[in-house]
Amino acid sequence: MRPNVHTLVFLYSGHHDRNGFKVGMNEYVSLQHINRKIQECTHIKIVIAFMDCCQPERIRVNEEQRLIQLSATVSTDSAISLRNEGSPFTKLLVQAFTMKASGGTCALPNCECRIDGPFITIDSLSHYLEIHRQNGLLRDMEPEKSLIKITWQNECLAYNYSYKVAFRFDIVLPQPFTSKRHRFEVLATTVNDFDALIQKILFPRFAGRRRCTVDLI
């Protein structure tokens, strides 16, 4: 890790039990290992952690480090992940940090939630999570904060970007389709991987179901 990096963001969304965090079929990483690696990074001054798992434990930092940890549930409860939908807690976190910039809408029907101001603070994010917990989006999970050396009301987590985040493409289709250059904009929230971008978004947009080669410029 670069010595000029002073903030570490750690996010885990998955299975967790007494063996640790599951990272493979039969492979686990213990929290003790993660704690040790974080504490060894003496140039890291603040750790921001999001723990989306069952029985989340609190990260241990060294005496010089500060900690902001938001967990999907308390340490004695289970987190919920829905088949084919993923984790509601992680989805809500992504929504909180990106919806304003990406032009997206809330997962709750008819919800016009937003985080105002130039920054996302611990207070505004906690309030955002609580609103959606009360409305049932978190499926009865009760997120928990763990803070060390933090003034939680005003501590900034991120910029609250208000401009749209999108990818813009100039696309040329080969003959006999057209020689005209097309411009197309894709919101960042619609892109999962490069192959899906080509096959499911750009190709149908300009070529329909016909076979052709699409050159991205």
Rank of each mutant, 00 (worst) to 15 (best):
G104D: 12
I122C: 15
R58F: 02
K22D: 05
I115T: 04
N26L: 06
V74Q: 02
P118N: 06
Q32A: 05
R60T: 12
L31A: 07
K37F: 10
L31I: 14
F119R: 08
R58Y: 05
Q39T: 14
E40W: 12
I59G: 04
V61M: 12
R133M: 09
A72L: 02
R83F: 04
F21P: 02
H43P: 04
L92G: 04
S124G: 09
I115D: 01
Q39R: 15
T73G: 00
L93D: 00
C41K: 05
F21C: 00
L129T: 06
L93G: 00
T73C: 09
S87L: 05
G117E: 10
I34A: 00
K37I: 11
Q39F: 13
A96W: 04
E130F: 14
F97G: 02
K22Y: 02
L70F: 08
D116I: 01
L138W: 08
C53R: 10
I120G: 01
I59N: 05
M51P: 02
Q95G: 01
D123R: 09
R139D: 08
R139N: 11
P118T: 13
T105L: 09
N84I: 14
P56Q: 09
I44E: 09
P88Y: 01
I122E: 05
L137M: 11
G86S: 09
H33C: 03
F97H: 00
L70R: 00
D77R: 00
Q69E: 15
A107C: 13
A101I: 04
L125A: 07
E64W: 04
T121F: 09
F21Y: 05
Y28F: 10
S75I: 01
R58A: 00
D123I: 01
F21H: 04
K37S: 08
Y128H: 06
Q65L: 07
E27M: 06
L129K: 08
H132F: 07
P118H: 11
S87V: 01
I80Q: 07
E64A: 06
E130Y: 15
H43Q: 14
C106S: 15
D77M: 01
T90H: 04
G136F: 13
E63K: 03
S78D: 15
C53K: 03
G136R: 13
S81D: 07
E27F: 03
K100A: 10
R36C: 02
L70W: 06
